[in-house]
């Protein structure tokens, strides 16, 4: 579907180096990286707004590296939406239909259909200046999707929205993806990546440092950026259930107490390694999650000592070297681990 082969771009002091990845048809591909890592430049290169110094871009088997922007069949939604402020919502959405062999009625119908899908039918005659951030984002998506792009490129689409609107838009993006749209989405937010992506590539300082499924990338971080979220290594597919009046997350057969407003949902739970307390005996505390397990591995890292404990599922606890000595932690030893229900974060998928 979309293939980048050794794309290098130079722009002043910054450069993209040998970027290669493949987005297959139907993928929701996340490009994850910090600000300034080069994510947006990758998108602009694919769209043809930036010319690469070397490398190839292939879309649907056709090399398009030197192709005109308007001939690539790519839809790009900018971070700041880039809605045309002097046109109405309807004129914005129908902008790309100019020059197509469609009657006025057909164009109007297309606009109505896409507006209905994105729930903005009531906004069609409005000016962009009167719209909220969430509404602008929907208009930007409608304006791009009406072209039926081979790949939808999204540049930090949820970055400047409040959490309620973010949740709504995540659902919308999932819906668009379910309808068969191939998506390449760049973000700095690992929760967004986990929540939406089925493939993830991590970009750091202009180069792809890791790619794979979310599980592969988060379980075995190969970059400082991912390692920065070391707690994310406690990242498990889970199902939220109600049991005896309390909320639990089922991870395989293990039942984890969780504090969430979600009911009966599937997704991931995250527990930060530094939120897990280790002890040689079971302790009575406010932590409602208390499991006994066996230490599998002890690895010193720059952020502390990563202790991996098998308690039915493998937990990563981050402790100080002092604690390792004090608790006499060694591989194979039985140990108790404790964490609060409020330390468990649920991300719906």
């Amino acid at each position: 579907m979309l293939e980048l082969k050794n794309i290098s771009v130079r722009a002043g002091d910054f450069s993209l180096r040998e970027i290669s990845f493949t987005v297959s048809k139907g993928d929701y591909f996340i490009l994850l990286g910090e600000s300034g890592a080069g994510k947006s430049m990758v998108l602009e290169t694919i769209a043809g707004l930036v010319s690469p110094a070397s490398g190839e871009i292939v879309i649907n088997g056709k090399e398009v590296t030197g192709e005109k922007i308007q001939k690539r069949g790519i839809g790009l939604v900018f971070q700041d939406y880039a809605i045309f402020p002097h046109l109405t919502v309807s004129e914005n959405i129908s902008y790309s239909l100019h020059g197509r062999k469609l009657s006025h009625q057909e164009k109007k119908k297309k606009v109505l259909v896409i507006a209905d899908q994105l729930n903005i039918s009531g906004l069609l005659d409005r000016r962009p200046s009167s719209l909220s951030g969430g509404e602008l984002q929907r208009v930007a998506l409608a304006r791009t999707l009406i072209q039926d792009p081979h790949v939808l490129l999204l540049d930090e689409p949820l970055a400047s929205l409040d959490s309620r609107i973010k949740t709504e838009l995540r659902s919308l993006l999932r819906k668009i993806h379910r309808q068969g749209q191939t998506i390449l989405h760049v973000t700095h937010d690992y929760e967004e990546a986990l929540s939406l992506g089925n493939r993830i590539a991590v970009i750091d300082n202009g180069a792809i440092v890791q790619s794979g499924t979310p599980e592969e990338v988060f379980r075995n971080p190969r970059s400082e950026f991912i390692a920065h979220f070391v707690g994310v290594r406690n990242f498990f597919p889970a199902k939220i259930i109600r049991e005896n009046g309390s909320t639990k997350a089922l991870v395989d057969s293990l039942s984890v107490n969780i504090f969430t407003q979600e009911k009966e949902a599937s997704g991931f739970i995250l527990i930060r390694g530094e939120d897990i307390i280790l002890s040689n005996e079971q302790i009575d505390s406010s932590a409602t999650n208390n499991f006994e397990g066996t230490i599998c591995e002890i690895t010193p890292t720059v952020k502390g000592v990563d202790v991996i404990i098998d308690a039915g599922i493998r937990f990563h606890a981050l402790v100080t070297p002092g604690s390792v000595t004090h608790l006499e932690l060694t591989e194979g030893k039985k140990i108790w681990l404790h964490f609060k229900a409020t330390a468990v974060k649920f991300i719906p998928a």
């Binding site: 602009e44 769209a47 043809g48 707004l49 922007i69 308007q70 790519i74 839809g75 790009l76 900018f78 700041d80 880039a82 045309f84 402020p85 902008y95 790309s96 100019h98 020059g99 304006r143 791009t144 072209q147």
Partner: peptide
Amino acid sequence: VSERTEKAALTLGASPSRVFFTI
């Protein structure tokens, strides 16, 4: 005029002259 707005028009299939006259 934001360059992004012009770039958005290009990605929506507009030629550079259409971007100039309409955006």
